[in-house]
Structures are given as C-alpha cells and as structure tokens.
Amino acid sequence: MVDMLIYLAAALAGIAFLMALYRFVKGPLAYDRVIAFDVMTIITITCIIMTAMITGRGIYLDVALVYALLSFMGVIVIARYLERSS
C-alpha cells in the first residue's frame, strides 16, 4: 500500500519534471527558461528528499538544503543580469 503510494508520487514528480523541461527547451524567452529552471530545482529538491526517505539516509537532507540555497542565489543573479543586459 505505502510502496504503491511512493511509486505513484515518484511518477507524478517525474511527469512534472518533464513538463518543466519542455518549457526549458521551448523558451521562447530567457525569462521562461529561468522560471522553468526554478521549477525544476524545486522538483529536484523534492526528489532528493524522497531519495533520502527511500534509502533511509538522513545526510541527503543536508544536500537538499544546500541545493535550495545555491539555486536561490542562482535565480537572483540571473534575474539581475537579465535586467541589466536588456
């Protein structure tokens, strides 16, 4: 029962990632790609935490936290850069 729910959740997260990836490839503007990147990052954080749960290793939670920190910085820097360059 619980295993089925976990598989279903992983499949849904995979579909979400593919849809964000579609927007990332298609664009058309740089902003669309940054948003898609942001969404992909959030989905990846969820996936890292689900990996931590499945393998039972708490150290992955720290990985997820650092990943959230770095991607936040990345989005802010790219947004400032796009604002200046246009």
Partner: peptide
Amino acid sequence: TTFLMLGG
C-alpha cells in the same frame, strides 16, 4: 506531487 505536476 500532484501539485508539483499541476505546477508543471
């Protein structure tokens, strides 16, 4: 994850 999919 359903909400994640709706966001995508």
